[in-house]
Amino acid sequence: MSDYNFAYLDEQTKRMIRRAILKGVAVPGYQVPFASREMPMPYGWGTGGVQVSAACLTPEDTLKVIDQGADDTTNAVSIRKFFEKTAEVATTEHTGEATVIQTRHRIPEEPLTEDQILVYQVPIPEPLRFLEPRETETRKMHALEEYGLMHVKLYEDISRHGEIATSYAYPVKVEGRYVMDPSPIPKFDNPKLEMAAIQLFGAGREQRIYAIPPYTQVVSLDFEDYPFVASKANHACALCGAGDTYLDEVIVDDEGGRMYVCSDTDYCSGRQDKGHRGEMAAPYMEVAE
């Protein structure tokens, strides 16, 4: 028996969040305001995602939490422990075993299924915020479907850098209506936004929830002569040898040495377990006792 109400939040708060989630599902890409609560962690550590996860979890769920693709970093570990304690749900590091996945800034490499929910932690939900700081104005721009400013921003990228230099939080248009910030996932992940799982986005400090239902059309903004490209580092993973995954660059010494490894730790170790080896992988695996 836990000392906490199931999944930490009180029931009235959960109902309020659940109503916001359902309106978000009904209007894909539209940011629904909600009365975000203070959580026992600071803003910026995933309070929005935690509240959405708390509203979604049932005792039967298996939870996975990733931070930049990794299951073993501070943010992921502490949120996983938080729900182990307050909701007593099972947890896993394996994408395929999870029913609810809370993520910070990545979509798992393994394709998600219809039985899964992906919950994103979102810092700044408003894609137009850095172009127009006033909420009253950005709200009007969404209402009028006035997204010219976003195309000007992408055009300025091209005129300055010769290509669309935006590499993360790359804006998308959902179901031909709302321009949406997919949270700071690398643009490599943008094509995966059209998936079989339900995607929910929670921004705690900014008090917004939004959603993409399964199989919803999600188009990355671009131009005919400068089409969207889902870019990644031009290397193979140094540990598992995968050539089609998003890679982290790791500096390994003070002489410019570096290695590129999968940011999705579960996917990478799964491939290594199957015997795939990259150029810097250990020649054999230690057998755990």
Binding site: N5, F6, A7, E11, K14, R15, R18, I21, L22, V25, A26, A55, C56, L57, T58, P59, E114, I117, I198, A211, P213, P214
Partner: peptide, 19 residues
């Protein structure tokens, strides 16, 4: 058991509206 049964009720409602 309101917290648990409401969570199951919500998941049914979410799945129904999202699909």
């Amino acid at each position: 058991n309101p917290p648990v049964e409401a969570s199951r009720g919500f998941r049914a409602a979410l799945n129904a509206l999202a699909r």
